[in-house]
Amino acid sequence: MSATPATALPPAGAPAEAPVPRIRVRGLCKAFGAKKVLDGIDLDVLPGTSMVVIGGSGSGKSVLLKCILGLIEPDEGVIELDGRNILALSRTEREAARARIGMLFQNGALFDSLPVWENVTFGLLAQRKLTRHEARERAADFLAQVGLAASVGALSPAELSGGMQKRVALARAIAAQPDILFFDEPTTGLDPIMGAVIDGLIIDCVKRLGSTAVAITHDMASARRIGDTAAMIHRGRIIWSGPAAALFDSGNPEVDQFTHGRREGPIQMELRR
């Protein structure tokens, strides 16, 4: 298996002297029991850029994001936000670091005891940036961003379709305009048009608000749309990273097979063995 150096390239037009990466991961390892899920992940995401992470189902993409968020304690490795190793911080400092990151969970993770409007504005209410009365009104704006009518705000999450839940969860993740955004499969379960709308929204967050984003996706078209850089996880490691535009002609056999969705190739061979 050929492994290319596992650092993300800066996007075209970046200044020559490399800026401090917003997110820097080195040698990240995590095992559940005997099962090694992450086995030495190295990753750099520069400020104001977005990275898409691709990889087979069960390859540890969600676990990677949860490790960076501090929701899963890694076994080994370094995770830096703006050059500060968050694993070495005290608990309160880690909480503060986590509040900088907005996360869209793969399954939405909406609070099902709260109505949609309160879900969407939860972070802002917690930071006391809004009163409940204002939150109720602002919720309509946040919902409109993800293509939902204001009337949805009064419903409870259980009354929504899967795709609607995903969009509410997305609205919740970006409402407080965090400077780091994690999206775990933002467009899975959405129709193609809504998928494109959501992609546009993510691009907007990065370009207009200057956020830094990491998105996991299985949708290659969407990966090329939203990513500046891309990385592929396979067997617990980043086996390739580079500009997202190069996903389809990466020259890496595993990536090639994955992005073109071929049955035959190095990955399939491993599954059969």
Binding site: L69, L71, G102, M103, F105, Q106, A109, F122, G123, A126
Partner: peptide, 12 residues
């Protein structure tokens, strides 16, 4: 369902 994890990403 990750709701407890979600709380901690929303400043709570």
């Amino acid at each position: 369902t990750d709701q407890i994890d979600a709380l901690s990403t929303l400043s709570t």
